[in-house]
């Protein structure tokens, strides 16, 4: 039998796990929740998110954590010295803590994204967590717009290349010249999209009743509570 769960419970789980990353500040308290979420999250997230992107995320995070440790926490006993750079115990500990936090935060988010469909998640946020229906409409509409805006952006880049400009944003001035045509097209689209939604009765739409808590919800929330307890008491 498949355990039923609300999509919003997974959102709460990811939020709770991310808050744990804010609270836990030692390798000991982070290691277990981070490994659980990291392994499960990357395994389930790789079905929906390109593996190249996940690999890039890992590399970027490791690099960022290393630089961060070197800049801000390079104190304590000397571990290794490479030419002019001396790496000390504080930098290594900081690198480990940041990497574990990354696994906890990104792992729990990937777990959520791997198990739910974005559209179902938005519906569940509105139905079960009572997110205002206007906001739910905006989020859903943003996801509808996403492929259109990607297409607009690639067309703007082609037009810029043909005019001899760079297609990469290098300064606020460049950013403005890309933003302006995108906003112009999107503004028109949003006005007619909004009128269309109004005519189809957006304001009259009723939100369906809450989905009852299932066994899956209890398991997910218990797993989150258990991770908090383990982390706080270790």
């Amino acid at each position: 039998m498949r355990a039923r769960y609300r999509e919003s419970t997974l959102f709460l789980y990811a939020l709770g796990a991310s808050l744990l990353a804010f609270v836990a500040n030692s390798v000991k308290s982070l290691i277990l929740p981070s490994l659980i979420n990291g392994i499960l999250g990357f395994a389930s997230g790789s079905k929906k998110i390109p593996q190249k992107l996940l690999a890039a995320l890992l590399v970027l995070n490791a690099w960022g954590a290393f630089i961060n440790g070197l800049y801000f926490h390079n104190v304590g006993d000397e571990i290794v010295s490479i030419q002019a750079v001396t790496i000390r115990s504080g930098a290594v500990e900081s690198f480990l803590i940041l990497t574990l936090r990354f696994f906890l935060i990104v792992g729990s988010t990937l777990l959520m994204l791997g198990l739910v469909n974005v559209r179902d998640l938005i519906r569940s946020l509105e139905r079960d967590l009572r997110v205002p229906s206007g906001i739910a409409f905006s989020i859903a509409y943003a996801f509808r717009l996403f492929p259109l805006l990607s297409k607009d952006l690639s067309e703007i880049r082609i037009a810029r290349k043909e005019r001899g400009f760079t297609s990469v944003v290098l300064s606020p001035k460049h950013l403005r010249s890309i933003l302006l045509p995108m906003l112009n097209i999107s503004y028109e689209r949003a006005v007619w999209g909004g009128i269309s939604a109004e005519l189809r009765g957006l304001r009259l739409r009723k939100v369906s009743g809450r989905k009852p808590l299932g066994l899956g919800d209890v398991i997910i929330l218990s797993a989150l509570a258990l991770q908090w307890v383990i982390s706080l008491y270790s």
């Binding site: 509409y141 509808r144 503004y187 949003a190 006005v191």
Partner: peptide, 8 residues
């Protein structure tokens, strides 16, 4: 509704 679409 137009505001919500612009917000999106």
């Amino acid at each position: 509704s137009i505001d919500l679409a612009l917000l999106a």
